[in-house]
Write a protein that binds this DNA or RNA. Sequence first.
RNA 1: CGGGAUGUAGCGCAGCUUGGUAGCGCACCUCGCUUGGGACGAGGGGGUCGCAGGUUCAAAUCCUGUCAUCCCGACCA
Length: 575
Amino acid sequence: MRMSKLFVQTLREFPSDAEVISHKLLVRAGYIRKLTNGVYNYLPLMWRVLKKIENIVREEMDASGAQELLMPFVQPSELWLESGRWEVYGKELMRLKDRHNREMCLGPTHEEVITSIGREGIRSYKQLPVNLYQIQSKFRDEIRPRFGLLRGREFIMKDAYSFDADEQGLDKSYEIMAKAYTRIFERCGLETKMVQSDSGAIGGSVSHEFMVLVNEDAENNAGENDVFYCTKCGYSANSNHAVSILNEVETDGHFDCAKIVDTPNTHSIEELSEFLKIPSSVICKCLIYVIDGKYVAALIRGDRTIEETKLMNAFQGNDIRIARNDEIEEIMNISGFNAVAGFIGPKGLKGVEIIADETVKDLKNFVIGINQNDKHFVGANWGIDVELPQKIEDIRLVEENDKCVDCNAPLKVTKGIEVGNIFKLGTKYSKAMNATFADKDGQEKPFIMGCYGIGISRTAAAAVERHHDEFGIKWPLAIAPYTVIVVPVSDQDETQMRVAEEIYNKLLEAKVEVILDDRQERAGVKLKDADLIGIPYRITVGKTIKDNLVEFKERATNNMVTITPDEAVSRILAL
RNA sequence: CGGGAUGUAGCGCAGCUUGGUAGCGCACCUCGCUUGGGACGAGGGGGUCGCAGGUUCAAAUCCUGUCAUCCCGACCA
């Protein structure tokens, strides 16, 4: 490709609306351009990168035995009504009506469609297992798209779905996908960690996420997930799913009697603990949540934080948020109190389900809200002063240096970008949508399903997050838009131009993806652009060409060597 | 949907307080000069100042509304 003809506009400055480095660099280097909020044009360089990633994904998926197909982007509401997700999915599902007023939606994922394909096409256990996948744009009307390609509303995704006759088959399909995913990201030049995860809105039981860890860069807030991992045994999990053994802390308040005391203006645990001169771990915190429209009071030890996904799952909920002040007021009215947040306690609450984290069980002589403003109950004990809730579960957020449940070593935390996700769905969709096959005994049974996603466009952005420097992108070779760029320093110099053309033509003939920077620009512009767009190798033809020498630069390391043009060509051919 | 901010040329911004009919840098076009890390000179093109009302002789500027975008929380590939 001749640079003078390549459709790319690099910018001298970073775009003002970009926050994370992948977004800034992809815009500045001319890879993407925003069309509207969370929706981007993939310009020619970007499209080449995406196709590279797609091809790696295709090769590995095909090698795993999966078959590619393509499902419609627009889907009828009927299928979603069957699965029950028309109501459940919420506003992320982009709904629309056709001219006949029939309700449709833009596909955010394709469980419903694939299940309909499975139930029509798979009649017998003899056809199983089957794994079908597609690579396609998805649309999710995200509440807040941000970070460029890392969280768009429209994005490119590979989604695969497996059908098996039994759980053992699913385990096998799942394992095959886990291995394929590991290879895919490796080939893309991305180190990933496979971590346990909550299965979220897709449903099902077991789930793992493939995370690109980005904690090395302190400035980087692109990693939206906290990943807890054990340095010793390899346990790792998303914070929404992680479990731990807690370190020993003081759980006895050592109050010599149980009584209500004045605690003015202590709205937070910190204020209360400071006021009473006690550790926060002897306070029982009570938070009011709204889960699917129902009130829940969650109790947890004062030094710990509620993990909202775990709390929501404890009630099989779909939606969770902390209660607003007016909602707390309503609860207080029903219960005959008038306390505000900070002084709420479980005793006497009406119209509220109460759940406790395991951490509160062992509290003795502790401090707890008593639904009176500016007062707390100190020296409380379960069963005497306050009833211990029936429902006790792990609803807490893991913290760094908690102990690993598998090996008791301390856990660490890091930020991760989720580039892939695999789920064991089980029969969630096959049962709801009556998708069955005839098993060996002739009985109709629902498919045991799994689903497996890779964010193609997000993977590209994650690669930029991990591979860049102050000058620009450093694409891993396997997903770079071009392999090499040939830069004649001066377009005035006939020898330089001639040699550059010769190198270019040799590489072209050898089917190498090569750019010749034939623009009438000064050297600085061409060299800066080469660094910015991040082509893995650069062959610079400058003055030393009189000694038959060119400069060969590797972008990943910025290492340069001076060699002959022929040697430069052979080095590229040897890649 | 809450909290904060911003909309002026393709990009980055100034002008707004104190109304007088739009400017700078980059990019773009022409010519000259220049060619190892985003040169220089001269000339040129491009903007209904987000949109709609209002106030005024006069609005980018003041007022009201509205839309969009960005940042902080609930979503997830």
